[in-house]
Design a protein around this nucleic acid. Sequence first.
DNA 1: TTAAATGCAAAGAGTTTGCACTTAG
DNA 2: CTAAGTGCAAACTCTTTGCATTTAA
Lengths: 153, 153
Amino acid sequence: MTASAPDRGSADTERVLERLRVQGHRMTPQRRAIVAEVIATRGHISPQAIAARVQDRVPGVNASTVYRTLDLLEELGVVSHAHTERGAEYHRSEHRDHLHLVCAGCGRQESRPAEDVEEARRGFARGTGFMPDFTHFAISGLCEACRGEDRDG
Amino acid sequence: MTASAPDRGSADTERVLERLRVQGHRMTPQRRAIVAEVIATRGHISPQAIAARVQDRVPGVNASTVYRTLDLLEELGVVSHAHTERGAEYHRSEHRDHLHLVCAGCGRQESRPAEDVEEARRGFARGTGFMPDFTHFAISGLCEACRGEDRDG
DNA sequence: TTAAATGCAAAGAGTTTGCACTTAG
DNA sequence: CTAAGTGCAAACTCTTTGCATTTAA
């Protein structure tokens, strides 16, 4: 179990499964695999990607099961979704606190801890009266490299 | 032509049509109606909404024509799109400078001039190295009213 | 045993594409 | 006249739903 390899049998996964069990939900192999996949994912992942990866491990898992399971996990507060250029992407709720940055220049996506923009959040609220949650939608802009080339981001 | 009524025969519309003409594009009634509709729209509008409205004025305009025309207008820099909770929405590029705020509490959408968050933009760049364009994706958060009830926006 | 969960197939919504027909220039 | 533009139908992607079957508890 290296630090870089996603860990589909982690204590975190077990904790979520235990929570499902306690709340009276059944523990099917499909559900187990889907939960493990989501928990093992660093950052965000699309429903289709989850389906594809889960099917590598448990052949025949239907996409509709993935969608139903994600809905369940979201209701339980285990996962949340964010809107990126490609649509909805899911991530662990505990990892909610990161930004999805999409560079309009090079197209690269990066993540940042939300705490890096606490000051900006307050400034935003000061200017608009609206307290933003910068993690729910992706944020377009120019990354450091592209800002160097084109100074008007 | 009052200030509050959308103006589908405006000088702005004519300016865009003239630009298309100059660049060698043909001026069809469909194209004329679609351009007029987009130009007359304050804020953003979805492709389906454009199709519906245009069809009220020029019956039989096909949705695919709307998509193709929007692509063309976007290539020419006349319109841009933003990503909201409901998907892609289009707006005049000159009106690019407004934010799409979606309140997670009451669900209401509001617009704000982007200049209201200039300070926040710089703060964001300072914290992350990434210069954000807050207008391309909608921004989730809590509006002033909902912040009053739930102080953790 | 039995209700929850799954698979499957069908249905949507939104968007794109290929192609024959129409039409602006 | 002739190529750009359109309409139409079909395809495609992503997601949801109804229902019969399977299965965890």
